[in-house]
Design a protein around this nucleic acid. Structure first.
Lengths: 333, 333
DNA sequence: TCAAAAGTGTTATCCTTACACCCATGT
DNA sequence: ACATGGGTGTAAGGATAACACTTTTGA
């Protein structure tokens, strides 16, 4: 093989590229006193709720610009932080898509917004994401649904063929944690995929996947979403939960001025775990992420609290400690 | 707006979805004693080297399966670890794509392989990735090219309009580090994008971007790649450098048995920094990632070393410490 | 014998996690 | 007065990052 097949493009087989249908899906997140919110369309009615989706129009210079454009039109206010999540394109994304020659792709984005007021109604509303992932909210300890999940998992392990048993055990332990383990709030996608595989989630049956649990065993405590949107949402939550640990993205969800406890409650809502107040305070102080405004607020229910603001000038770096690489070799100069 | 415009799809504007040309691009990485390698096509000749790209065929159930299929056909051996990187689709991806109605997208993947022998020739070869990013190799201290880069950056800052000056300064400091700062090896993409924006990289001029430096000022010490492939490669390197810190992916590049120093050299090659031997050793030991095989090797140039193997059973979790969230509130039971 | 790499010991420092405790306000 | 949240002190244990040093081979 010489240079043939290169001129037309960069395709390995020389067979050219395929046309595909592409849209954008957005996990748009806001924080409220009550919990983490995500924007969904078509609440109520006989169809399942779906993430806002829009077309990928060639007139925008970047994909992200296209996303911002239609989301801002849809919600009526501008997006803050935006990041690409993942491109979803399994052939069974859409039950109806099988047999098509052209694949249907969806580029998922995560967006954080401060406002939650605009454009309610219009077929669109904010929902707590824990409606769709009740097992991800461990703030008040393990929720009800967890016992049903653990039962399901136990059955799936018990009825495993001999040689798959250990594998299933360790996968379950990795995702949901064993007795003494600390809950790892980042593994949202892993947990969802395990439940999907076991068949505890209705999408698995909808997609016609072969799974252990019968359709009736699917968890009723959790609501489903259109197509693979629950998977996309899980990806978004995972990414956000990971990111708040090493980048100051929470502040994209906060009002301009806030108290330590408000900040803590927001982080807790996103992470789905409760935190230790004094240590949270010191961690944030220590990182130099906030500064005092001088003002205080008495809407606290207790002693008045100082109002803080995010130090925007910190965005320069904050490398995030990133475990794993030991110190560099000291270089004699 | 009621439920209209929903039946046909999930498009916000109801205008339907756009067809786009989609292909897959792969950053295929291997490690050698000499450094980190990436697989490139069309070395030599008058065209720039490019990452292997292939079509997205509808017959594969997942995008990843499609990728594996053509890469394995191309290289003649199977891929180990594979992960999706990013979907690239700026309108100026392809200089020739402007004015088209259909956008050209590329879904970038990172793949790690152990073998480097198969299918050399055939228009395809392994290259050290530092040919394209010489400034990313800090193993022997700051390389030559760094002084040219710092000069360029200094000029760009000096000639900034009053109100942009501080911004430019802090962006440069974030990407390349100030005097006393530790080099942050993860910021490969940020550094590339800064160089692109300044115009120190020929792609910027090829794409017709408006930038500070003239075309002749572009760095000659670094080689360019076809289209936006240097950006895709930068994304891959960034991702890999981040990942080795909290997931045991290095072992996907190692032979089945290896010594501590071989492992260290591989990590160093990827991260582009030198590490402190005794501490690296203890870190790896401490994490329980490896076990002794009992064998030793004398191909060391010094005292024989014990041969290790990766403990595959560790893949269960290793949460990765993830800095940032203080401990959970102790829950009284 | 010496260079080169393998390996061990030890220490100061910082960060993490947990405990206990006091302060200021509204009802 | 007491509940609620705001805010401080401190100490044990572990991880990090640096230092110095011994051991075992081949040339």
């Amino acid at each position: 093989m010489s240079r043939a097949g290169r001129s037309a493009g960069r395709s390995a087989s020389g067979s050219g590229q395929d046309a595909a249908t592409v849209d954008l899906s957005a996990v748009i997140v806001a924080a409220s006193p009550d919990g983490p919110l995500v924007l969904l369309r078509q609440i109520g009615g006989d169809l399942l709720p779906s993430l806002p989706s829009g077309p990928l129009e060639p007139r925008h210079r970047t994909i992200e610009a296209g996303l911002r454009s239609w989301v801002e039109e849809l919600t009526g206010h501008s997006l803050g932080y935006v990041e690409q999540l993942y491109t979803f394109g399994d052939a069974n994304r859409h039950a109806s898509a099988r047999g098509q020659t052209s694949r249907s792709l969806s580029i998922g984005y995560l967006a954080l917004v401060r406002e939650t007021r605009a454009r309610q109604g219009d077929d669109i509303a904010w929902q707590s994401w824990y409606r769709f992932f009740p097992w991800e909210d461990m703030r008040a300890g393990a929720p009800q649904v967890m016992t049903r999940i653990r039962e399901g998992i136990a059955g799936w392990i018990a009825e495993a063929p001999r040689d798959e048993r250990e594998d299933r055990e360790s996968r379950a332990r990795a995702a949901f944690g064993a007795a003494g383990d600390r809950w790892n709030e980042e593994l949202v996608l892993e947990r969802y995929e395990l439940l999907y595989e076991i068949g505890l989630v209705p999408e698995a049956h909808r997609d016609g996947a072969a799974c252990w649990a019968p359709r009736e065993a699917a968890l009723t405590e959790a609501e489903s979403l259109y197509s693979d949107h629950r998977r996309i949402l899980a990806t978004g939550i995972s990414r956000l939960r990971g990111k708040i640990k090493y980048r100051p993205v929470v502040f994209e969800l906060m009002q301009p001025r806030f108290t330590f406890l408000q900040l803590q409650r927001t982080v807790e809502a996103l992470a789905g775990v409760e935190l230790h107040k004094p240590n949270f305070r010191r961690l944030v102080e220590h990182q130099g992420l906030v500064e005092e405004t001088g003002a205080v607020t008495s809407n606290t229910g207790g002693r008045p609290a100082r109002l803080l603001r995010f130090r925007r000038d910190i965005l320069r770096e904050h490398p995030g400690t990133g475990v794993g690489l030991p110190p560099g070799r000291p270089r004699k100069t």
